[in-house]
Simulated scan of single mutants.
Amino acid sequence: MSDETPHENRPDRWIDLEGVVNMRDSGGLPTRDGGTIQPRRLLRSDNLQDLSEADVRQVVDALGVSDIVDLRSDTEVSTEGPGPLWQVESLTHHHHSLFGDNRGVTAEQALAMPEHSTRPIRDAGFWSDHYLGYLAARPDSISAALDVVSRSSGATVIHCAAGKDRTGTVVALALDAAGVPHDVIVEDYALTGERIERIIARLMPRDLYGNALRHQSVDDQRPRPETMRTILDTVASEFGGAQGWLREQGWTDADIERLRQRLTT
């Protein structure tokens, strides 16, 4: 049976705030069994450093966020400093870097730019290898991030710097585990391309990322659908899908069902 799902009538899931450009809700995405991902359960975003006071109220009061999962490296977190959401007592912050603990990380590494080259060839194969590297190097962080989603009392925001690569990998596994068809996950991943220029413009003035980004074109950073298709196909063939991958990390059937129920009911 085809994994394809009609693309019409998809809800607009963008969340427009002053301080981010790549935040959206996974709510409304269909599952294979005829259900949907519930709104205000799993949000994805670029970094949250620039939220205004109005944005903070929107995140906490309107979106009902209770947990923040930060996938950035220790270097990024320490360089950027605490954002305004750290002052909100009702929120729980979880730092699950996809790089090694206490490892110094360059902007090139954080943004998946090969060092020693100013014009790397970053086709879908490059990005697929890079994302699979997250699964190989930091399965503990990815598993922990998904555990947060499964236990959250409200919405969970998963973010990195751009909300594209690290966030895209973790959110894709969450959606796959919940039964969202692969073509829908691919489409959700590629949606970031609609705002890639704004994402880069937002990161450019930041000391940590600006110099690295000046050596790249917009197309170098644009998400490619075939990249996510490769990730999902690889996880399916090697582990039987995201649920099988989670079992490899020690999750029980009850743990997986908790994640699925949290996202779909």
Rank of each mutant, 00 (worst) to 15 (best):
T169H: 09
S52V: 00
G125W: 02
D129W: 09
V184H: 08
G34E: 08
N211P: 06
D101V: 07
L17R: 03
V184K: 10
A174G: 04
M228E: 11
P114H: 04
V171A: 12
R262C: 04
A177Q: 04
A236I: 01
F126N: 06
P225Q: 07
R224K: 15
L175Y: 05
A177C: 11
D147K: 12
E4R: 11
M23I: 03
G154D: 09
G168R: 08
Q38I: 00
T252P: 06
P84E: 10
G241W: 07
G19R: 01
Q87S: 14
R57Y: 01
L232F: 05
L98W: 10
Q87P: 00
T264P: 04
R260H: 15
E226P: 00
G83E: 11
Y209G: 01
A242T: 06
D147Y: 03
H95F: 11
L51W: 04
S237N: 13
R41F: 01
P6K: 02
A254I: 08
G81K: 02
V148N: 02
L173V: 05
H116S: 13
E194Y: 01
I185G: 01
I199Y: 06
F99W: 13
L259I: 03
L232C: 07
S78M: 12
T234Q: 13
T118D: 15
S66F: 02
V69C: 14
D219V: 10
P30T: 09
V184Q: 14
I142F: 09
K164Y: 02
T169L: 14
P223D: 11
Q49A: 11
A242V: 06
A112M: 14
D255T: 01
V69D: 08
L232K: 05
E53Y: 01
A110F: 00
R224L: 15
V170R: 07
K164M: 12
N9I: 00
L91R: 08
R57A: 13
V235W: 02
E238M: 10
P223F: 12
E187R: 13
D176A: 11
T5K: 05
R122M: 15
P84Q: 10
L259W: 04
R224Y: 08
W251C: 10
Y131H: 15
T31G: 10
R198G: 12
L191R: 12
V65F: 06
E115C: 00
A177R: 01
S128V: 01
R258G: 02
R262D: 01
D220R: 01
L91K: 08
H95Q: 14
Q49D: 14
D70H: 06
A174R: 00
A212E: 10
D101Q: 12
I142V: 14
L42Y: 02
A254M: 03
N102H: 14
P84G: 09
P120H: 07
D33A: 14
A162S: 14
L43E: 05
G83N: 08
R258S: 12
E238S: 15
P120K: 08
D253M: 02
L29R: 09
T5F: 15
G104D: 15
S153G: 15
T265C: 05
D140W: 09
D67F: 03
L259G: 07
A201Y: 01
I142H: 06
D50R: 13
D188K: 02
I121Y: 11
V170G: 04
S90K: 10
D207R: 11
S237D: 15
L71Q: 06
W251S: 09
L111Y: 03
L43A: 04
A144P: 03
N211K: 13
N102R: 13
